[in-house]
Simulated scan of single mutants.
Amino acid sequence: MFQKTIESITGKVKKRFKYYAHTKRKLRRKPEGQFAEVNFGAFLLNRDMGRYSFILCQMLKFSGFKVVVKLDPRFFLNEVPYKQMLLAQDYTKVRGSNAPNRSVLLHGPGEKRKQLNFICSYKLIDEQIDAYYLPYTLHPRFYRTFSDNTNFDACRKASRATRIIFSGNFERSLYNNKVLKDNFGWTISRVDILDHVKSAYKDDPRILYAPTQKHFYDLLRQAESRNKFIIAEVKTDPEDWLKILSSGDFYLCLPGMGMPWSHNAFEAMAVGTIPIIQYNHLFNPALVHEENCLAYHDFDSFNTALELALNMKPEEVERMKANVIAYYDAYISTKQIIKRIQRFYASDEETLTIALPYLNEEI
């Protein structure tokens, strides 16, 4: 017991030293040109939320700002991979900031200064406010460089190996949990969808299951998989992910662990793969059934969506694919987010509220 206490104290001291080693007490000298003074506060920086702070900082960097980000000691208590991504960037890390909590100050030549304010709440879904609703994103690994999340041409033009695809984690304890049902009672979890498919489509030759990664990759190479629905209850190697997504005409976009949004839907759309999705109404603007998605709201409409996808004529698939790419480029892409930030910076507006309806902290 005594030994564990000593180890715990030692660990905390080491992390405190790490905090001081990585950060400056304050910004002593302003960077030349445009810079963003970032103070996301503890909520957006810590634990799994670190993925969003990294992406937001990179968006500012891609928009032409040098990034100065305020960290706090808690940032180092649990260093998930997304925090390592943030630390690896050439940001200036400080312990103090002039930016208010949950905001970014955009500085320019002379005394030019603009402010971005961030609001995180599920209430923003129903209680629409006058704000820029930031779209959900690809996985953080696609934001290490600008080209990582803007160069999708090869995947969009790739020949498709199968009709519908899903690959991902189906672990019941993670993806059939109480949090999802409590916050979004209408959502059908990915585990429930898998159970339904195995029951309703038992022995259906159009449904292929891949229990291992090798089996999954083999199925994608087989000509007889062309008009099938492949379900892989496995994760793929990250470097293969976009290629995997672009192997299907459609991707079954199942919800995340605690909320409907999942990176997989946005990554699928980036490469021109049509989403089969329950939460199409949570997009801004909403995705439209049979225009840029196949939408379902219960098990019966899910069955209908699957049949539509499996029996759709090639020309209809191409029409929907073109619509998906057009939607992504117009509303989700990094280039559009950059344009919005830069337009605000060049405008006469002094503040811009950015709404994140997929993150929840009471206002």
Rank of each mutant, 00 (worst) to 15 (best):
L282W: 05
R190W: 01
T10R: 15
N101L: 15
D153I: 05
F266T: 07
L245H: 09
K181Q: 13
R156L: 03
H139M: 09
L219Q: 04
R51E: 01
H22Y: 14
L308Q: 08
S199V: 06
F166A: 04
A330I: 00
D218I: 01
T334N: 13
I274F: 14
R319A: 15
N323T: 07
H297S: 14
G11Y: 01
N360E: 14
D348S: 15
Y132D: 10
N311M: 09
A322W: 06
F283P: 07
D249P: 11
F75W: 04
Q278C: 03
L86K: 00
L194K: 15
H289L: 00
F344R: 06
R74C: 06
I230N: 04
M1Q: 03
R190M: 02
Q222S: 15
V191G: 10
N78E: 07
L27P: 01
F2R: 14
A99R: 13
I164K: 08
F146I: 06
L106C: 10
D240V: 02
F170G: 04
A286Y: 00
L116G: 07
F229K: 03
F166S: 06
F250M: 11
I276D: 01
I230M: 12
W261P: 09
K313H: 14
S147R: 12
I363K: 13
S333R: 09
L194P: 05
R221M: 04
L87K: 01
E267A: 11
T162I: 12
R51I: 00
M312T: 10
N98W: 08
L180S: 13
Y209W: 10
E315A: 12
E349Y: 01
N183P: 02
A326K: 12
G50Q: 01
W186Y: 11
L106S: 06
I230E: 02
S103L: 02
S199M: 09
C253T: 09
N360A: 05
